[in-house]
Design a protein around this nucleic acid. Sequence first.
DNA 1: TCCTTCAAAACTGTTGACACATTTTCAACC
DNA 2: GGTTGAAAATGTGTCAACAGTTTTGAAGGA
Lengths: 233, 233
Amino acid sequence: MDLQEAETGERRPETLGEEVFGRILELIYSTELAPGMVVNESVLATRFGVSRGPVREAIRRLQGIQLVSREPFLRARVVSLSAQAILELFQMREALEGYACRLAAQRMSEAEIDALIADLEAAHSGQPPPEAARFDFHERVVRASGNNRIIDSLCGDLYHLLRIYRRISGAVPERKELAFTEHWQILRAIKMRDGALAESLMRSHVERAGRHVLAQVPETPSPAATDAEKRAS
Amino acid sequence: MDLQEAETGERRPETLGEEVFGRILELIYSTELAPGMVVNESVLATRFGVSRGPVREAIRRLQGIQLVSREPFLRARVVSLSAQAILELFQMREALEGYACRLAAQRMSEAEIDALIADLEAAHSGQPPPEAARFDFHERVVRASGNNRIIDSLCGDLYHLLRIYRRISGAVPERKELAFTEHWQILRAIKMRDGALAESLMRSHVERAGRHVLAQVPETPSPAATDAEKRAS
DNA sequence: TCCTTCAAAACTGTTGACACATTTTCAACC
DNA sequence: GGTTGAAAATGTGTCAACAGTTTTGAAGGA
């Protein structure tokens, strides 16, 4: 289980801090570290076979992207988003993805647009892709905006938070069909170079998605906070 | 110069990491650590009379909010924004502050709006306030949006970056007059509860401010990068 | 003179130990 | 039986030393 030995293939020297960061992220995604649970430095350090330094660094980085909350001498915990916080998260997505969509309508080349349309339809009609190269419409549009700051914010920090709560709303067939239609309309607006329309459509789409997630998570202020203590020991 | 001794007044236990973070921030604001200059862990540690641990933590936090750039084993440097990066920064502000403005138009009470109008006019007609309680129109509007995630992003991370480059465009009388007019128009739209108009006006206003900053910083890919080495030694 | 090579210097990454704060335990006391 | 308060236990904050990597700069060759 040692980290050093796991690094067999030669690649450019990655620090332990980076590695541990990714490992903890996986623990959070897999709900082994569920929202509300405590993130213990020593426990993780011994588990990964490293000292507390790199673990501490990784946790601080997770704090930076708001995945764990913490105050000076208190224990760190995986964030447990309230309904209010989820609403705010999707509002921020509305603002940023809407604007990114407007930029994309201005900057994408005809070829890029056509390629994106083709990929969208292929992903919809074809069988589910091999997960490795999954088609992510939102990420594609955001990256097409060309604004690296917005790209980093949406595909970095916010994406991690969304991913925790995406599992909830995933795999609902009817929603999937509706999403395809909305995605297709957005691309149509981009192809027409109507930035304002594209932005408006994207906002509506994100807002709808947000409402859907909120409906699935009606009232769970800190679901795993209590029994988390048990499992941590 | 020791940090422990400087902390004479009793307050709740703040960690050295927090303290050092603030100190380095001040060094960056005062241009003692100018864009492009190296941020050396050991040097700062001895300067502040602490070990490298807290300094390292503070630097990592500065990396998190994108004020210093760094790769694994390379030296950390204060970011030196390119024209492209400044453009992207203001675009993100457009998206976020515009949306915040729309939210503010929906959520502010009549009393809050009137108070904000009064403060705006007082700050404009009256003599420059005592700096401590400076009137910041943008921050007031953003906080009025009620979206904590957007508030943290704009008043936290982005604000630090803007502040470094705000010095450049500050104290230009004609710009100041124009800004007041634009601020006043935005508030008028908010009072009319016209969120779409308020958002549109705020976007134009931010974009104009961005162009103004860009005009002052035409071509300086890394101005202090070269002579920074000298001063660092 | 310029480029290459290679060792010393400087710096960052990592570690284990120690100091301090918080939480929990548990016994004395109302 | 419930409450209070001190001490143990747990966990975070800080430090100094060591290890690995990058940079520096001087010697050697074309």
